[in-house]
């Protein structure tokens, strides 16, 4: 299902500042890995190179053996359709219903006529059923018709997960998916992502939480646009971490706050009908 990703000497510049420099990375199909790094280290930019959403200054990105940046429009569209993204927030269209947003996971595959039909009448019966199933799976079965803007941040994030479930992508790019949600939602979202990974999708998660990153079999750390660490979590020492996050005051604070709040309120166990189906 997933395809092999190879980044070779990738460099990205914005003006005269380098966001990425000489990044070389290979990801096997179906692998899961966590990307960590200080604010501004280039984590989001790294993900954007994988959908050709940013211009390359140097190097190459290969997806499934083909140079991503040399594909025709049609091929690029087909490749992107296999990529599912989920961000920390703001990646849904607030004016549309939750169901429509989830259905948009499939929109790239629609022809012109089907696009128009979906725009005016909504998704067809088959897609509607899948959308409902996906929303049920994330515990939002009754909110299919709710305006997305009226949902809470955590519920919106679950809609974004439902969109992934509808799309069934071969590569999942999750850019700080938990930054704006409560711990219970975070856990549900993570469980859903891991499920998709178990079914064969490659999973790249950009995390702000080093403890969470350590649960992944592989960690890639970026520092000022370069790869500072790539390996198993057990090889990641505290000194290395200190170097990776050096000068990122905000993060240290953030981490301390989080520890504090964790200690104060123990995580509540989700009750009854909600939550991503846990296995």
């Amino acid at each position: 299902m997933g395809q092999r990703l190879v980044l070779d000497g990738v460099g990205v510049r914005f003006g005269d500042a380098a966001a990425l420099e000489g990044v070389t990375l290979s990801v096997k199909p179906g692998e899961k890995l966590a990307v960590i790094g200080a604010s501004g280290a280039g984590k989001s930019t790294l993900f954007r190179t994988l959908t050709r959403s940013v211009a390359l200054g140097s190097g190459s990105v290969t997806v499934g053996g083909r140079n991503l940046y040399a594909l025709s429009w049609r091929e690029l569209g087909a490749t992107r359709r296999r990529v599912g993204t989920i961000h920390q927030a703001y990646n849904l269209v607030p004016e549309l219903s939750a169901g429509m947003n989830a259905a948009l996971g499939e929109v790239g595959g629609l022809g012109r006529l089907a696009t128009l039909r979906t725009l005016l009448l909504g998704p067809d019966a088959g897609l509607s059923r899948r959308v409902e199933g996906a929303l049920q799976q994330v515990g939002l079965g009754e909110r299919v018709r709710a305006r997305t803007a009226d949902l809470s941040g955590g519920q919106q994030q679950r809609v974004a997960v439902a969109r992934l479930l509808v799309q069934r992508p071969g590569l999942i790019l999750a850019d700080e998916p938990f930054a704006a949600v409560d711990p219970v939602t975070a856990e549900r979202v993570m469980a859903a992502l891991l499920d998709l990974n178990r079914e064969g999708a490659t999973l790249l998660v950009n995390l702000h939480d080093v403890a969470a990153a350590r649960t992944f079999p592989r960690i890639v750390a970026l520092r000022e646009g370069r790869i500072a660490f790539d390996g198993e979590p057990k090889d990641l020492t505290d000194e290395m971490l200190a170097g990776i996050y050096e000068g990122d005051e905000k993060r240290v604070q953030h981490e301390e706050e989080k520890l504090g709040s964790r200690r104060r309120e123990p995580m509540r166990v989700a009750e009854g009908r909600d939550g991503v189906s846990a296995h």
């Binding site: 569209g77 992107r80 359709r81 929109v107 790239g108």
Partner: peptide, 28 residues
């Protein structure tokens, strides 16, 4: 807000689809 529009484009929506489903509903 262009992030939802970019999110659509990044998952393979055509320009027209990104406009119709991402930009237009927000402007209505």
């Amino acid at each position: 807000p262009s992030r939802p529009v970019e999110a659509l484009r990044a998952t393979g929506a055509t320009e027209l689809q990104a406009f119709l489903f991402g930009r237009l509903p927000q402007a209505m």
